[in-house]
């Protein structure tokens, strides 16, 4: 009895976590299930909450209504390239703010941080006009490059550098004869891996899930990315919901993989500042 009372807080805590997990993964499971049913089964009442038998049919249908693998390839290209370049540019820029003293540094940094407050929707039309002016409409380049040096990433990385790279270390490297590029590459980058992983996954998810930018930039169907392609199916009369659900589910898999891969470093990166103060 007393034992039960003692364990009660823990049990209730775990019950709470369990319920939260169920709520979180329910949409994923639901989408996965819908991907195995035909359109009429999905619309039956009550809807079928179990795995069906139409997986292959849905898959064939999916390939029929859209070049799924090409589109997936486009999404991967944009997201992977964008992630790598963003992490590189943001860390370089953060290093500049961290390691050098220059006139107006605080003002530039302040303006940059302030720009994070501007709602992204507001910048949509200027963004479109800029992209059009640059002549990169309807290219994948316009999807990942313009955001590759972004305020959030620079801010995140610089704050991490401040807490985890000591100035003496930079001085020691200078005395050791390292050039600025060398210090960045051999001393600073290895020490900020956790925050690089954090930024990488945030950027990857953002690029992967981005719908608005492709919508206004991309017009040729063979350049569609997943979000755009899956959305475009829904305008067809008699939307093949089974196929759409299957495609949606398949499009989540890379994200899950990326998260599994990076989650440990990412948690370290997100909590490091909090722990070290």
């Amino acid at each position: 009895m007393t034992k039960l009372v003692r364990l009660l807080p823990r049990i209730s805590m775990q019950a709470f976590l369990m319920v939260s997990v169920c709520i979180t993964i329910f949409p994923f499971v639901w989408v996965a299930m819908m991907g195995t049913h035909s359109r009429s089964e999905i619309y039956s009442s009550p809807p079928p909450f179990y795995f069906g038998t139409r997986l292959l049919e849905n898959y064939e249908k999916l390939l029929e209504v859209m070049p799924f693998w090409t589109v997936l390839g486009n999404s991967l290209l944009v997201s992977v390239l964008g992630t790598i370049v963003t992490v590189l540019f943001c860390s370089m820029c953060a290093f500049g703010f961290f390691a050098y003293e220059f006139r107006g540094k605080n003002i530039v940094f302040g303006v940059m941080v302030a720009s994070m407050m501007v709602p992204p929707v507001l910048t949509l039309i200027p963004f479109f006009l800029t992209v059009k002016f640059l002549g990169i409409l309807d290219t994948h380049f316009a999807l990942w490059f313009p955001t590759s040096a972004n305020a959030m990433g620079i801010f995140l990385i610089r704050q991490y550098m401040v807490t985890s790279v000591s100035r003496d270390l930079l001085d020691a490297a200078k005395v050791d004869g390292a050039s600025d590029l060398r210090i960045y590459w051999s001393v600073v980058l290895p020490l900020i891996k956790p925050v690089l992983a954090t930024l990488a996954i945030i950027v990857f998810i953002a690029l992967w899930n981005n719908f608005l930018t492709p919508l206004i930039v991309i017009s040729s169907p063979e350049k569609y990315v997943l979000t755009l392609a899956l959305r475009s199916l829904q305008s067809v009369a008699n939307t093949p919901w089974g196929a759409v659900m299957l495609g949606t589910f398949m499009s989540m898999i890379p994200l899950l993989l990326a998260f599994l891969f990076f989650s440990k470093q990412m948690m370290a990166g997100l909590t490091a500042g909090a722990v070290k103060g």
Binding site: S166, D168, L169, D171, A172, A173, K174, V175, G177, A178, S179, V187, P190, L191
Partner: peptide, 20 residues
């Protein structure tokens, strides 16, 4: 001259060893 060109070595109070 930059630190690199002076051929001096320095031992820091915090040691400043590269942690990685």
């Amino acid at each position: 001259l930059s630190p690199r060109e002076r051929n001096i070595a320095m031992v820091f109070q915090s040691y400043a060893l590269y942690p990685h």
